[in-house]
């Protein structure tokens, strides 16, 4: 059984009569890492948001199975509890809410849903320090308010840190690599490589091939106008980097004609 099966997914914004996803098909097995590439506005973030259950988007057609179960039935927090994690393209600031407090609530809520005991304060702090050091972030970050006043790079690294804390089955990274300098990019890539294991699948949405020099995907998909129009191996990513998306567009147009 695949970890994630997306079949003929159509989605849009209901109120405004906007269609964004036009029949996405994608299958991801546990232990695999797939990259999704595509030009701006092609619907990558929308796909991520639909997977995470954002209410703004309405599913018009198709289905999503997560570990064989209908994902669309579940509330966003239930999906998180079931093991879906989204690293946001634009992480949100929560003024006055300390990272420690936030993560403690999050970790315990997810643990409870998975039938594990709540962590005591002492165990939690120990666990948090472990994960901070695993993904190599400054422990001082945990004393600050969630994303408040974080630099762009810190926000992205903080998402990877939260991924490490929450131990999901499926991690979706939405352009976590965008806007990072080379050190931060390496840091994020190292984090992903450490967290990638047999029990976990990754969907890495990216705009650039750059991150794929550090992370070797099992598959690369190209999204265009809300559809996956091409899939291949890492070679595809190189080709996109060199030639851009135009040839894919032409190919897609030819196929449609």
């Amino acid at each position: 059984m695949a970890l994630l099966e997306i079949e003929n997914l159509h989605a849009g914004v209901e109120d405004e009569d906007i269609k964004i996803l036009n029949g996405v098909d994608l299958t991801l097995d546990t232990g695999q890492l797939h990259a999704i590439m595509g030009p701006n506005g092609s619907g990558k973030s929308t796909l991520a948001a639909v997977l995470a259950g954002r209410e703004e988007y309405e599913v018009l057609e198709g289905e999503i199975l997560f570990q064989g179960e209908d994902l669309l039935e579940l509330e966003p927090e239930e999906r998180a509890e079931e093991g879906i994690f989204l690293a946001f393209q634009y992480p949100v600031e929560l003024p006055g809410v300390s990272m420690t407090n936030f993560l403690k609530e999050a970790v315990n809520s997810v643990r409870e849903a998975r039938g594990q005991d709540e962590l005591s304060s002492a165990d939690f702090l120990k666990y948090m320090r472990e994960k901070a050091s695993l993904v190599d972030i400054d422990a001082d970050l945990t004393k600050r308010s969630v994303n408040e006043g974080f630099s762009g790079g810190e926000k992205k690294r903080n998402e990877i840190f939260q991924l490490a804390m929450l131990q999901p089955k499926l991690a979706i990274l939405d352009e976590t690599d965008s806007g990072l300098d080379i050190d931060a990019l390496q840091n994020v890539s190292n984090g992903v490589n450490k967290l990638w294991n047999e029990e976990r699948g990754f969907l890495v949405i990216t705009h650039y091939e750059r991150i794929l020099q550090y992370i070797t995907p099992d598959r690369v998909h190209v999204m265009l106008d809300g559809e996956i129009v091409h899939s291949g191996d890492q070679e595809l990513a190189h080709k996109l980097e060199e030639k851009g998306y135009d040839w894919i567009r032409e190919e897609a147009a030819a196929a449609a004609a």
Binding site: E77, A80, F88, L94, G96, V97, F102, E105, V110, Q162
Partner: peptide, 20 residues
């Protein structure tokens, strides 16, 4: 939504945000 995505329900999320 950010809070929900981290497993927090409506009330938990609101409590955190208001306390913050």
């Amino acid at each position: 939504f950010y809070c929900h995505q981290r497993g927090l329900g409506e009330e938990e999320a609101l409590k955190l945000i208001v306390n913050g």
